[in-house]
């Protein structure tokens, strides 16, 4: 993986319409972003379509990542994640009867994957671990599967407002932990 500075330099050139830089950016980031699309969508064909659309967005918006103060890699991840989430939600809306939600694989990462330990990640994981049972999982399900309050309430079998209160409280705890 390229350094953040390299990615930032590529993004700056993509913003100016440099197609060679766009190809380099694709070469350095597409496997990561495709992995995210696959994780969210659990379908290769859909993940491929999503990835294509994500790079179209990246081309068009590369100049704007600074607007919200995100680092370049976070911006790329967020664009891919949000786009995949939109797709998965659209699919769920279409297949509401099929109860796709409950067929989603669970998110517990295997031990072999924890090899890549960035300090950022370690901090987030530590803070998630401080949450009461189930709450950390709800945060992961929202982020990586696009589950809504309604989905989560159904999954954890609690009333919607209870779910909302739980999660909001968890976010506050998480924020305090992360800011420590």
């Amino acid at each position: 993986m390229a350094t953040p500075e390299e990615i930032e330099a590529l993004m700056a050139r993509v913003a100016l319409g440099d197609r060679a830089a766009f190809q380099s950016l694709y070469a350095t980031t597409s496997a990561k972003l495709f992995g995210i699309c696959l994780r969210v969508l659990s379908s290769r064909a859909e993940a491929e379509d999503a990835l294509q659309e994500v790079f179209v967005k990246i081309w068009r918006n590369a100049g704007r990542y600074r607007v919200n103060g995100l680092s370049p890699m976070t911006w790329l991840i967020t664009v891919a994640r949000n786009h995949a989430i939109d797709r998965v939600r659209a699919r769920r809306a279409e297949n509401a009867d099929l109860d796709v939600v409950n067929q989603m694989p669970d998110e517990a990462p295997g031990p072999e994957t924890s090899a890549i330990q960035s300090s950022e990640r370690a901090r987030l994981i530590d803070c998630l671990d401080e949450l009461p049972d189930g709450r950390a999982r709800a945060v992961r399900l929202a982020y990586l599967q696009g589950e809504t309050y309604a989905d989560l309430a159904a999954r954890f079998d609690v009333p919607l407002n209870t779910m909302r209160t739980w999660l909001r409280r968890s976010l506050l705890t998480l924020r305090e932990c992360l800011s420590r």
């Binding site: 496997a31 495709f34 976070t74 967020t78 994957t113 960035s118």
Partner: peptide, 24 residues
């Protein structure tokens, strides 16, 4: 956004199909 992006750290990287650049 920065903190939550860390949830993708253990998402496995997967090479997209070879024709993806052409599709884009």
């Amino acid at each position: 956004a920065e903190d939550l992006a860390a949830l993708t750290d253990d998402v496995e990287e997967v090479a997209p199909p070879a024709d993806m650049p052409a599709r884009i």
